[in-house]
Amino acid sequence: MLADDAPGYDTLDASGQAYARMLFFSLWPLGGGFSSYADGFASLRQQRAFRSELTQVLTYNLEHTDHYPIPLLGEHSGVPLAIHASYSREEILPALGQAELGGFLPGNFREGVKWCEGIQTDALLITLEKDDKDFSPQTRYKDFAMSPDRFHWESQNQTSASSPTGQRYQQHKARGSHVLLFVRRYKKTDIGGPQPWMLLGPAEYESHEGSKPMGIVWRLQHELPADVWTYSAIAAG
């Protein structure tokens, strides 16, 4: 989509359009004032220097990837995300079908949880080391890795074990719904921008304690990368 001879958005297949929307919202989190994705990409054609620079950045990042991405399978095989790859909210939300022009825009997302009706999936976006400036005592949740494949997560304060959301967390496997965990160490990077989340992949409910909030233990299908396991366990301290 950054090439001089990039295809039009409307000519892309469903997968191509999904990736294109991830790029679109990475550039314009609040829609950029465009009435269509095609209009946004048409405006990009005129920005040759910007497209060249962004292509160089993406190429560099691809050559310096720290973790080997694992494809999502099963009912998530059509979701344009990979396990152990990292994404911004502007990529995560459209990838999960939760953002679109004329509807909900990624720039307005403030929560750490999202129920994705279309793919029957709870997306949990976790920030491990929370800053006092950004999180009140009520929202400094207790999130940490218990082992390379078990993760303790604390729900939002209003979620009780008997609520519809709490019941869905506990019974997701029997109900045929899914849970995807995303994690980042800090809210911001060293230069002040938002740090992306790593997709830890599908998780299965194992147990919980308490209510309002619930302290849930999730079992991951894929073990944490070694460096993520280290800083996720440290967060427990």
Rank of each mutant, 00 (worst) to 15 (best):
P80C: 12
T11I: 03
D4Q: 11
E154S: 07
Y205N: 06
I216W: 03
D39V: 00
I234K: 12
V217R: 11
V228Q: 01
G97C: 11
S35Y: 00
F34C: 07
D4L: 13
P225N: 03
R45E: 08
I191M: 11
G97A: 11
F41G: 09
V179L: 14
Q158R: 09
R168V: 04
Q120A: 13
H152F: 01
N108I: 00
Q47A: 15
E111D: 15
S86T: 14
R184Q: 08
K187Q: 14
G118H: 13
E209Y: 04
D134K: 12
Q98I: 01
E63Q: 15
L81T: 03
D227Q: 05
T189G: 15
Y19T: 10
E204H: 14
V228A: 00
R185L: 04
H84T: 01
H208N: 13
D122Y: 10
S43N: 13
Q170T: 07
E154P: 02
S162M: 08
G74M: 07
E90S: 14
N61P: 02
L62Q: 14
R184S: 06
W153Q: 07
L62M: 05
V179M: 15
A123T: 07
E209D: 09
D5T: 06
G16V: 01
E154G: 02
T165A: 13
S86D: 13
V228R: 00
S35P: 00
A18F: 00
T121D: 05
S147R: 01
Q158F: 10
N108A: 11
L96T: 09
E117S: 12
R89M: 15
T11M: 03
D13I: 02
S15K: 11
G107C: 09
Q167D: 07
R21D: 08
L72R: 06
P94A: 11
F182R: 01
S26I: 01
W28M: 10
M1G: 02
L58I: 10
N61T: 03
P202H: 07
S35W: 00
L12P: 04
D39Q: 12
A203M: 03
P7L: 12
M1T: 03
R175Q: 15
R219W: 08
K142F: 01
W28Q: 13
T65G: 09
L199I: 03
S136E: 06
K133T: 07
S15H: 09
P202Y: 06
P29T: 03
S77T: 04
V217S: 10
A99Q: 09
T65M: 11
L200E: 02
D149I: 01
S86C: 14
F109V: 12
P137T: 04
S35F: 00
L27Y: 09
P7Y: 10
Q17Y: 04
S232D: 05
I70N: 00
D227W: 01
L180Y: 05
G237L: 10
E91N: 10
L101K: 03
L44D: 06
V217F: 06
G102N: 08
H222T: 00
S88K: 15
V228H: 00
W153K: 07
I92R: 12
V113W: 14
M22I: 03
P80Q: 12
Q56Y: 05
A38N: 05
R184L: 08
P7K: 10
S147N: 01
S177C: 08
Y60A: 12
D39F: 01
W115V: 07
G74F: 10
